[in-house]
Simulated scan of single mutants.
Amino acid sequence: MTNLVLFGPPGAGKGTQADILKEKYQLIHISTGDVFRYNIKNKTELGLNAKSFIDKGQLVPDEVTIKMLNAEVDKNEGANGFIFDGFPRTAAQADALAELLKLKNTEVTAMIALEVDDEILVDRLLERGKTSGRKDDADESVIRNRIKVYYNETAVLKEYYKKQDKYYGVDGVGSIEEITQRLSAVIDKLQA
């Protein structure tokens, strides 16, 4: 089973690459943002619980997020593996993910991080903001703050997975195809 944590700052291309990689390697893509939106929209017990925190402007507690992820993993029993996108974001979440996967007799195979220069990220997100309708992609100061928060909060995960010899940085600049080739080279090596 191949379980990947796809990592990178806002605008690095995680969603685009996850869509390609899930097809190529027959993996299940679990985006925590999508899982939250689905559970909230469908008014599941977990969704209502998460919404109560979001409505107060608070982060959803790890325990609620892990329960949602567990439900997604259980829904896809027999899968070849998973691409986790947007989770974990902290060492505590990484520990919780490790525990969840251990209960399923598997583990995180690797964290693959798309590495992109900040100025390129800002340009990409401003461009995406013109078509996506996302307010957080239309304001440069908001974008720069999101990038800063990403580095401050998630840099610890790079070290977390490096200590386990599971961290792989991949150049996230170039055409979609070039970036896919770089990611595939890492995944192919892991599966060999």
Score class of each variant (00 low, 15 high):
F87E: 01
I112E: 04
Q58V: 00
Q93S: 03
R128F: 06
L59H: 02
F82R: 07
L59V: 01
Y151V: 06
K56L: 12
L114F: 09
D117A: 13
N105E: 15
E63N: 11
L103W: 00
A138K: 11
G86M: 09
S52V: 03
D123C: 02
L100S: 06
A138Y: 00
A91S: 12
I112N: 06
E63S: 13
A138H: 00
I120C: 02
I147S: 04
T131W: 03
K148F: 07
V116Y: 13
D74F: 02
V142M: 10
A98N: 14
T106W: 07
K51M: 07
D74Y: 02
T65A: 14
I120P: 02
E119P: 15
A94C: 03
I112G: 10
D95C: 03
I112M: 06
F82Q: 08
V73Y: 04
A113V: 10
P61K: 13
L114T: 07
A71R: 10
L125V: 12
N145G: 05
A71I: 01
V60Q: 13
I54D: 01
L121I: 09
P88C: 02
A50K: 13
K51P: 00
L100A: 07
A92M: 05
I143Q: 04
G86N: 11
I83H: 02
Q58K: 15
N76I: 12
